[in-house]
């Protein structure tokens, strides 16, 4: 069983996707061995009010219970409190670099206070793509891992899951905090997971594929080809996600 903590649905100007319905998305993930996935709206990355996109996503994925919605919230917008009122939220995602605020901005203090009171984990989308390959007139640097360390330590009661981190960032983030977790979608080196496990413990690593931006099979093969014991395998594949998001 694999739980994917990093999937998205919608349209993106720089790529065309062949998964254009919730059913197609669930089928794609299922055929790769993924039984449950946390999913966000990719329209909410650029559309000025992500709450509109969150609502659309919830409607779209209604027929597919294996897809669990993760609303994207921009704490810099006046309506962010309202956007958090929905019940049963498993996690909340922020995209600081696309939504143009810094993690050390005081506007995050009330936001994080509410998150802690509701015991909702936070996902930080560190980047969407490889900065080297971005459209030259739309350069969006990745979120600075140093700011994440400062932020995560300041709000240490809330679990933070950083999505699309590079290996060196993953090591720094996990070693310098107690509450940051990382997904494997952007982490790659020869023998990816055994190498990573030499630097950080398995309970801080989650399976994430970044589907449909990336080919789902790449993350699945990284996990399945790794020669490791059953316990860390299970932790990364699903147990950590189950625990963190109460799935």
């Amino acid at each position: 069983m694999i739980i994917d903590v990093n999937t998205s649905f919608g349209r993106w100007p720089f790529q065309k996707f062949d998964v254009n319905s919730a059913q197609a998305m669930a089928k794609r993930l299922n055929s790769a061995g993924i039984t449950k996935a946390l999913i966000s709206s990719m329209d909410g990355i650029l559309y000025p009010d992500p709450s509109v996109c969150n609502a659309e996503l919830v409607k779209t994925i209604k027929p597919t219970p294996e897809l669990i919605p993760v609303p994207t919230i921009n704490p810099g917008l006046a309506n962010w409190r309202k956007a958090m009122e929905t019940s049963g939220i498993k996690a909340i995602k922020i995209i600081p670099n696309y939504h143009n605020y810094s993690l050390i901005d005081p506007l995050l203090v009330p936001f994080m206070r509410i998150l802690a009171s509701k015991r909702i984990p936070l996902m930080i989308q560190m980047r969407i793509d490889d900065e080297r390959n971005q459209y030259p007139l739309m350069k969006i640097p990745g979120v600075d891992w140093r700011a994440v360390v400062q932020f995560a330590n300041a709000f240490h009661e809330t679990p933070v899951v950083c999505l699309c981190v590079y290996r060196s960032e993953a090591v720094e983030l996990v070693q310098k905090t107690r509450n940051v977790h990382v997904d494997i979608s952007f982490i790659e080196f020869f023998q990816t997971l055994p190498t990573l496990l030499r630097s950080i413990p398995p309970d801080r690593i989650l399976f994430g594929s970044h589907t449909p931006f990336l080919y789902t099979e790449s993350a699945v093969m990284k996990l399945k080809s790794a020669q490791m014991k059953a316990k860390p395998y299970k932790a990364i594949a699903c147990a950590n996600a189950r625990r963190l998001f109460n799935i």
């Binding site: 062949d18 790769a32 790659e188 080196f189 020869f190 023998q191 990816t192 080919y215 789902t216 099979e217 790449s218 993350a219 699945v220 093969m221 990284k222 399945k224 080809s225 790794a226």
Partner: peptide, 18 residues
């Protein structure tokens, strides 16, 4: 592009392509 990359991930993009 091994050794900076992983066979699994790199083969995944070929196996994953439609």
């Amino acid at each position: 592009d091994i050794i900076g990359r992983d066979f699994s991930c790199q083969l995944g993009r070929v196996y994953g392509a439609n």
